[in-house]
């Protein structure tokens, strides 16, 4: 498995999440349904093979371990990420984050405001716990992949 192959599997999953699941989460009547969808999201992303989970890809600041891989299409200046997490709820939340950032240009990524976006999606409550679940740490790591100007 290569990063390119993982990306090829990730992108259609993200598209589906964007077109369908985000709406399902907003429409969920109770927290149980919300969490069920959230955990399904994580499952849609391809798992990163154990061999590829190198220590330098580990994102610190998460209670559960999470890994981030980055691909920069320099010709078009587009950033793509693949990630995995041991915990399912966190992986679901990270999948939503990926939907928002994958394909961004360097300038867009630099401006990306996770807090604002999650607020718009009514997902802000999940961010309040993010110091524990590592969502903020992941967002910072993603933004740090922007090439320095």
């Amino acid at each position: 498995m290569t990063l390119e192959q993982l990306l090829a599997e990730t992108q259609p999953a993200l598209l589906q999440i964007k077109q369908q699941d985000l709406a399902d989460i907003s429409a969920a009547k109770d927290w149980q349904s919300k969490y069920r969808v959230l955990m399904q999201l994580g499952k849609k992303l391809p798992p990163v093979p154990e061999k590829m989970k190198q220590p330098h890809l580990l994102v610190k600041g998460c209670e559960s371990r999470a890994w981030l891989m980055h691909y920069h299409d320099k010709a078009q200046d587009k950033h793509f990420f693949v990630l995995d997490s041991e915990a399912r709820i966190v992986k679901g939340l990270m999948a939503i984050m990926l939907c928002l950032v994958n394909g961004m240009t360097s300038a867009e990524l630099a401006k990306f405001d996770l807090c604002h976006k999650f607020d718009q999606l009514n997902l802000k409550p999940y961010l309040s716990q993010s110091r524990g679940n590592g969502l903020t740490a992941m967002a910072e790591r993603i933004k740090a992949c922007c090439p320095a100007k």
Binding site: S64, E86, A87, R88, V90
Partner: peptide, 13 residues
């Protein structure tokens, strides 16, 4: 088979 963080989050809810 589940991560303790997931269990704790569902209890937190």
């Amino acid at each position: 088979g589940e991560h303790p963080a997931d269990v704790a989050e569902l209890l937190n809810q």
